[in-house]
Design a protein around this nucleic acid. Sequence first.
DNA 1: CTGAAAGCGCTTACAG
DNA 2: CTGAAAGCGCTTACAG
Lengths: 336, 336
Amino acid sequence: MSTITDVARVAGVSVATVSRALRGLDRVSPATRQRVLEVAAELQYVASPTATSLASGRTRVVAVCAPFLSRWFFATLVSAIEKELRSQDHHAILFDLENDDYHSRLPLTQNMLWKRVDGIIALDVTMTDEEIDLLDRLGLPVVAIGASIPGRPCVRIDDSAAMRTAVEHLIGLGHRRIAYIGDVPPHVPHVRTPRDRIHAFTDVMAEADLPVEPSWVLGSDWTAQAAAADSAAVLTGSPRPTAIVAASDEMAIGVRETARRLGLRVPQDVSVVGIDDFQLSDVLGITTVRQDVTAQGRAAARLLLDRLLEDRVCTGDLVLPTELVVRESTGPAPSD
Amino acid sequence: MSTITDVARVAGVSVATVSRALRGLDRVSPATRQRVLEVAAELQYVASPTATSLASGRTRVVAVCAPFLSRWFFATLVSAIEKELRSQDHHAILFDLENDDYHSRLPLTQNMLWKRVDGIIALDVTMTDEEIDLLDRLGLPVVAIGASIPGRPCVRIDDSAAMRTAVEHLIGLGHRRIAYIGDVPPHVPHVRTPRDRIHAFTDVMAEADLPVEPSWVLGSDWTAQAAAADSAAVLTGSPRPTAIVAASDEMAIGVRETARRLGLRVPQDVSVVGIDDFQLSDVLGITTVRQDVTAQGRAAARLLLDRLLEDRVCTGDLVLPTELVVRESTGPAPSD
DNA sequence: CTGAAAGCGCTTACAG
DNA sequence: CTGAAAGCGCTTACAG
């Protein structure tokens, strides 16, 4: 493959001129530029990104960090981010911070980032103090999605509002005995979203003068599997809740499946609502509060690119709207 | 941040010595190495990957290319690949080749690859002749997953065998009127898997002397949504199939949902089987032929690393086993 | 065992 | 408008 020197030689100009012509800088005569462009095309010249990076100090690469990669929410974000970055000639390098268990994750290190990326998009990763220090030292711009990072812009939804919408939907249907699944132990690192959602749940219940039965507030690792298993006790108990709100659609799906398996009709016997509008929520008829995950990924990438390309810095959060989507999994509360 | 020159100066040696010491090459005295290590740690020195790449010609970055990124199969592969690569100090850069429609994808270009990556892992991408030329010209090692690429190693399952297993399971349960969903138009670029699966279906049916009703062979874009919609006609027709085999679990889920919505019991009235063991297949009780997607991703990454690190070249395909997992969505054929 | 020097392939002031 | 030269921060023969 040819280098800039080859192009310069064939075009009969200096490498400096080739560099300027190819990057569209001014102070190159139209004729020269034309000639350089032709030669470059002919030689199938593509600048070495590695050499460009060393000389310019910019890699045009962005680190995308997430506590998991294979889950729908994160995979959807990654896909959106990658496309947006590429549209501006940037690339995404991946860091799956998943550890052996749900309750911890791998730390970000200087090795991952230093001179390797121009910036970071953090998908729902709550940073430790050491990590924040590192980011400061490296001077890397960061955009967060979901969990916010002190002093950095964050793209997210209003988790409280989303949960309010879900619970108020149930209350509006006449439900009074409502269970909750999706509580998370206090030491879990990715916490804002779970916490906001459960707080909104208890707030709305209190405002409506409805009791929150402690044994009806279930922990979970936020998988459909765990939700299916954990909800069985509540669904077989007596009295039984007439509705269950799940902090995510995947959990809602697990709960609905368990309900059916126990012979309960959804929604006639028990209503189930989630949050997300997960990939399968529409076919499965899950009532949910939709968030636009692709839009969040795109927005975060754009925020970072604005910073990188035009040094336009955004502070504060970008909060995207959510929307109630009523499907078959919720209905009027059964009369006792 | 400090450079190799800083470390050399503080340690009182040349940069060449620092380079050797840090990379664990021999011909460095233990005392010197020790001293260099200490200084490097003290200065928090991390070598610039960009400079290392330019000098060494190796980027330690691998391109992971896929026609979609947000679907479970691909996201699971990406996660497994990223972890395996990182365990060997390599990184994954992502290329989501998704286009506006299911039937085409973005092409691989020299711009994406040249001097940017050391190798490529292609997730179910059927290469065009131009792309194969490009890969030859660039001399980049490639490992495929799913769809194979002429002359390159490929990690996959035996799609025919997997489908045979699924269909034979149904036949063993006494089903004779069996429909199929997951056929793909001939011009779709990612084709081997769909084609192998449907051929296996018709083969097994023929061997069992069972008719394949053309109107019971349904096309699909392999989403649960499309499967849910497309299967309605077959499920409301008369006669009705007693079983439907879906080329993927996501389609099976869509079919099962439509069946239930139409008032059919699964599996008493109609059995549904898929292939994959998708993330939600266990909670939803979908009988399936399981493939280990994580193992495939890991194996592909390892194959590529073997090639990159030890120039150990593998030719031919690595075929991983599949396994029937019987759950609630299949049962004995109803007596007419 | 260690160092001086060339080289990787670009970009970027600085002259002209 | 164009070129010569320094520099980005490493690695790698080559001497010694």
